[in-house]
């Protein structure tokens, strides 16, 4: 999935702790067009719960949330 998805914006959230990964995604979601995708890389394990919750609350979509070694990689799609 992640291989084919076009990424509109890369976000480096490494080292940031709660609630900043979620805050940064929310601050940047309007920098991609509707339907666009942010690829965000975080190191805070809490982001695995928070970013999907953020998406559910704001009506956006998490296409994937994967643990890769010590990093957590999210593909977030702007829905509206």
């Amino acid at each position: 999935m992640s291989d084919e998805t076009k990424i509109d914006l890369e976000l480096d959230l490494k080292g940031l702790l709660c609630p900043l990964p979620m805050v940064k995604v929310s601050q940047n979601i309007n920098n991609v067009p509707v339907g666009g995708v942010i690829r965000a890389v975080a190191t805070d394990p809490g982001a695995m719960a928070d970013i999907p919750a953020w998406a559910q609350s704001t009506g956006n979509e998490v296409l994937s949330a994967d643990k890769e070694g010590s990093e957590f990689v999210f593909l977030v799609k702007r829905v509206k």
Binding site: C18, P19, M22, S26, A53
Partner: peptide, 12 residues
């Protein structure tokens, strides 16, 4: 402040 900022980020 963490709760407030999180909530604001979630569109509240």
């Amino acid at each position: 402040f963490i709760i407030a900022n999180g909530a604001a980020a979630m569109g509240m």
